[in-house]
Write a protein that binds this DNA or RNA. Structure first.
Length: 592
RNA sequence: CGGAGCGUAGCUCAGCCUGGUAGAGCACUUGGUUUGGGACCAAGACGUCGCAGGUUCAAAUCCUGUCGCUCCGACCA
């Protein structure tokens, strides 16, 4: 490609709405342009890079035996109602109406469609196992799109779905995909690592996310350097000890705490109750019903955990008004001690609470199990209790691990201190089980004559996000540093004098033709611009290899081979093609 | 959904407080000079000052509404 023939609108300055390095570089290097919030056009150069990522994904999916297909992005809402996700994923579903007022949804993933297809086309164990995938545009109604392609309303995702006859067979599929993912990210030049993950909206039993470490990532990962443990913070647990029991079994003691509404205030004079001897009482609204969550005063609730336990995504903190209606006291004085909770809730003015048939469920963190001598709100404004024994005084519905792990806690596997770092989620693999196959009727007749639901798995890769993650992980002050595997062009030839009959341009044209003949993706910067402009642009765009040709070096019988991330190598003109081909070979990971 | 900020040339922004002829740099066009790290000179083109309404003799500027964008928050009672 000749530079003058394509469109590479580089910018000296980044648009003001770009925050992170990769987003700025995508815009400055002329790869994408924003059409609206979270909606982007891929310009020619950006599309080339995107296609390279897609091709790597395609090759590895094919290698793993998955079958490519293409499903509609525009989908009828009925199948979403059937799976139950019309409600549970409702906050991210784009919904629209056609001119006949019929409703449609724009697909964020395609479990419903593929399961519907499998239901009608797969009927026998003889047809299994099967894994299908597609690379297509997806939609999410993001509350707050940001960081360019990282969190967009419209994006490209590879989604794959496996159908198996048994858990054992599904496990084989899962591992195959897991391996394929490791290969894909390695080929993209990404340092991605798998972590245990929460299953979120998709649902299912078991999952891993593939994470790219980055300060600007929107996820936090808990990991152990001593052993293999790594988990999304939404899922992570630690070996932190339970609250130490105290010897005494003293009776409840109510005391006045006027103006004290925080854990911190209660930990100071004159009360001096350490945060780790307090019980924090939180109220959430899950599917429009209040639930009470208890956690130790010095711990943080992990909302993803409680949402997972209740099995809803429609979970939010209750407002002060809702809390008073449900509890009969205001935040800061709440408590779940049985007697007070009951008396407050029975108060006739608590209409909201009365409208609920059942008392709110009380979920407590495991770390509080067996705790006594604790302090918590009396569920009466301005009062707290001392000497609370949680098992004696509070009717806990169920115990769970609900707290958020913090750095330095002992690893749940090996006991060494855990670390936490930020990361970008680029891939996600799930074991789905029969959640969708049961609801949408994807069953098969087994060898024994029994009809059973398929065991499913699903596997996603954010293709556009992966592209941006590559840039986020590989750039410097001058611009992008593309790995060869996803660079829009591998080689940029930069003649410093573009006079058509000059020796410089003639040599440039020859090297260009020779490289192209070798199958190298090469671009020739034939613009009649000053050298500085051309050098800056080639570094901003980040081509892995630049071949500089100018009168000065040519007089010495040399051209300049400049790897984007390395030092300049003088090379004889008739050796340059060979050297370039070798460089490309050296920088391509084995196994391709 | 709550709070804050911003919408002026393709991009970065000034002008707004204190109402009175629409600005700069970069980019773009033409001519000339220059030519190994984002050149220089000259001439030029590019704006319903987000949109709608109001106040006023007069609105980019003040007021109201609206749309869009950005940031913070929407666990830590």
């Amino acid at each position: 490609m000749k530079w003058s023939q394509t469109l590479i609108p580089t910018l000296r300055e980044a648009p003001a709405d770009a925050e992170i390095a990769s987003h700025k570089l995508l815009l400055r290097a002329g790869l994408i342009r924003k059409l609206a919030g979270g909606v982007y056009t891929f310009l020619p150069l950006g599309l080339r890079a995107l296609h390279k990522v897609e091709q790597i994904v395609r090759e590895e999916m094919d290698r793993a035996g998955a079958l490519e297909m293409l499903m509609p992005a525009l989908q009828p809402p009925e199948i979403w109602q059937q799976s139950g996700r019309y409600e549970t994923a409702g906050n991210v579903l784009f919904k629209l109406k056609d001119n006949g007022n019929r409703e449609w949804v724009l697909s964020p993933t395609a479990e419903e469609v593929i399961t519907t297809t499998a239901a009608s086309e797969i009927n026998s164990y003889r047809q299994l196992p099967k894994t299908f995938y597609q690379i297509s545009v997806k939609f999410r109604d993001e509350i707050r799109p940001r960081f360019g392609l990282m969190r967009a309303r419209e994006f490209i995702m590879k989604d794959a779905y496996s159908f198996d006859v048994s858990d054992e067979a599904a496990q084989v599929c899962y591992l195959k995909m897991y391996d394929a993912y490791a290969r894909i990210f390695a080929r993209c030049g990404l340092k991605a690592f798998p972590v245990e993950a929460d299953t979120g909206v998709i649902g299912g039993k078991f999952s891993h996310e593939f994470m790219v470490p980055a300060e600007t990532g929107e996820n936090e990962v808990v990991y152990c350097e001593a052993c293999s443990y790594a988990a999304n913070i939404e899922k992570a647990t630690s070996g932190i000890p339970k609250t130490a029991a105290r010897e005494i079994g003293a009776a409840l003691e109510k005391f006045a705490t006027p103006g004290v509404f925080t854990i911190e205030a209660l930990s100071k004079e004159p009360f001096s109750v350490a945060a780790n001897r307090q019980i924090k009482t939180l109220v959430y609204i899950a599917d429009s019903k209040p639930v009470i969550v208890l956690i130790r005063g010095d711990d943080q609730l992990n909302e993803a955990k409680i949402a997972g336990i209740i099995g809803t995504t429609i979970l939010r903190a209750a407002t002060a008004e809702e809390i008073f209606a449900a509890m009969g006291a205001h935040p800061g004085s709440l408590g779940a001690v049985a007697s007070t909770l009951e008396s407050q809730q029975k108060d006739p003015i608590r209409r909201f609470a009365e409208s609920l048939r059942d008392a709110p469920k009380i979920y407590a963190d495991e770390r509080l199990r067996g705790a006594n001598g604790m302090t918590t709100g009396a569920n009466e404004d301005g009062f707290h209790f001392h000497n609370v024994s949680i098992e004696r005084d509070i009717q806990v519905t169920q115990w769970f691990d609900l707290r958020t792990v913090t750095a330095g806690e002992p690893c749940v596997k090996c006991g060494k201190p855990l670390k936490i770092r930020r990361a970008i989620e680029v891939g996600h693999v799930f074991k789905l089980g029969t959640k969708y196959s049961e609801k949408l009727g994807s069953t098969f007749l087994a060898e024994d004559g029994q009809r059973r639901p398929c065991i499913m798995g699903c596997y996603g890769i954010g293709v556009t996000r992966t592209l941006q993650a590559v840039i986020e992980q590989s750039n410097d002050t001058n611009g992008i540093i593309w790995p060869v595997s996803v660079a829009p062009y591998t080689v940029c030839i930069t003649p410093l004098n573009v006079a058509p009959e000059g020796a410089v341009m003639k040599l440039a044209e020859k090297i260009y033709a020779d490289l192209a003949a070798q199958g190298v993706d090469v671009i020739l910067d034939d613009r009649d611009d000053r050298p500085g402009v051309k050098f800056k642009d080639s570094e901003l765009v980040g081509f892995p290899i630049r071949i500089g040709i100018g009168e000065k070096s040519l007089a010495k019988g040399e051209v300049e081979l400049k790897p984007r991330a390395g030092a300049m190598i003088p090379v004889k003109p008739d050796e340059v093609v060979e050297r370039v081909v070798q460089l490309i070979k050296d920088s391509t990971p084995a196994g391709k």
